[in-house]
Simulated assay, not measured.
Amino acid sequence: MAKKTKPLSDLEIKRIKYIDKEFKLYDGNNLYVVIHKNGSKYFRLDYKFNDKRRTLGIGVYPSISIKIKGCQSPPF
Rank of each mutant, 00 (worst) to 15 (best):
G39H: 01
V34A: 06
P74Q: 08
D46L: 15
E22G: 05
K24D: 07
E22F: 01
S65M: 06
N38K: 02
Q72K: 08
D51L: 08
D20V: 04
F43R: 07
I16H: 04
E22Q: 14
D46V: 07
Y26I: 06
G59P: 11
C71I: 07
G70T: 11
L56Q: 11
I13D: 13
K14T: 12
N29L: 05
P74S: 10
V34M: 11
K67V: 07
V60W: 00
K6D: 12
R15H: 10
I64K: 11
I64C: 12
I16L: 15
K24A: 08
K37W: 01
S9P: 01
N29K: 10
S63H: 13
G59S: 11
F76Y: 13
T5M: 14
R44D: 04
K37A: 05
E22H: 12
K14M: 06
V60A: 11
K14Q: 15
I16F: 11
K67M: 07
S73R: 13
F23R: 01
T55Y: 00
R54Q: 12
N29W: 11
L56A: 10
N29R: 07
G59I: 10
F76S: 10
L8P: 06
P75N: 10
K14R: 15
G57V: 13
K6L: 11
H36P: 02
S63R: 10
E22L: 09
K6R: 13
Q72P: 05
Y61N: 06
K41R: 04
K52I: 13
P75H: 01
I35F: 04
K6I: 05
V33C: 06
G39C: 09
L31A: 04
D51K: 14
P75F: 07
C71K: 15
E22A: 13
T5G: 04
P62S: 00
Y18R: 02
S65W: 09
E12C: 03
